[in-house]
């Protein structure tokens, strides 16, 4: 179910879980398109040579995944900000799930706050944050 008006949003509502494509091919395409295709993002061996556990999913790509998840839930939402705290690296070719849940609704202003969490297969939080999105009612 997608959300088109703020009056349909409920406190505690969970956004559909999103499974991002963190494959090396996809990350390479993103990093190249973003002009940020350093070896730590595009080559596992090169990343390990830098002391990293593997190639990294760029932070801006993780933020893009978060925005994509929000728009799958509320296609017309205006994302005012996505505020992330990176607790641990998101590694290429590893499975992650992105969760979101509504934690504040200001119907008058049309704003909804969403908690965002990127977890790995072990359930560890790698990235968390919040987003503020504007969802108007059609008449407003």
């Amino acid at each position: 179910m997608t959300i088109n008006r703020i009056s349909d949003v409920e406190f505690g509502e969970e956004l559909p879980v999103f499974t991002p494509d963190t494959s090396l091919d996809n990350v390479r395409r993103f990093a190249t398109a973003a002009g940020w295709a350093g070896p730590r993002f595009t080559d596992h061996e090169a990343a390990r040579a830098e002391g990293l556990p593997g190639a990294l999913v760029p932070g801006i790509m993780s933020q893009g995944f978060l925005a994509a998840m929000i728009h799958r839930w509320a296609p017309e939402a205006q994302i005012k900000n996505v505020d992330t705290v990176f607790r641990a690296p998101v590694i290429v070719d590893q499975p992650y799930t992105i969760s979101g849940v509504v934690t504040d609704i200001d119907e008058e202003a049309g704003n909804v706050e969403i908690d965002l969490t990127v977890n790995n297969e072990a359930g560890e939080t790698r990235v968390f944050g919040t987003a503020t999105v504007r969802i108007s009612n059609p008449s407003s």
């Binding site: 939080t125 968390f128 944050g129």
Partner: peptide
């Protein structure tokens, strides 16, 4: 303790 930094934690 949760060490919560966001509401849902």
């Amino acid at each position: 303790g949760s060490d919560a930094h966001i509401v849902s934690h």
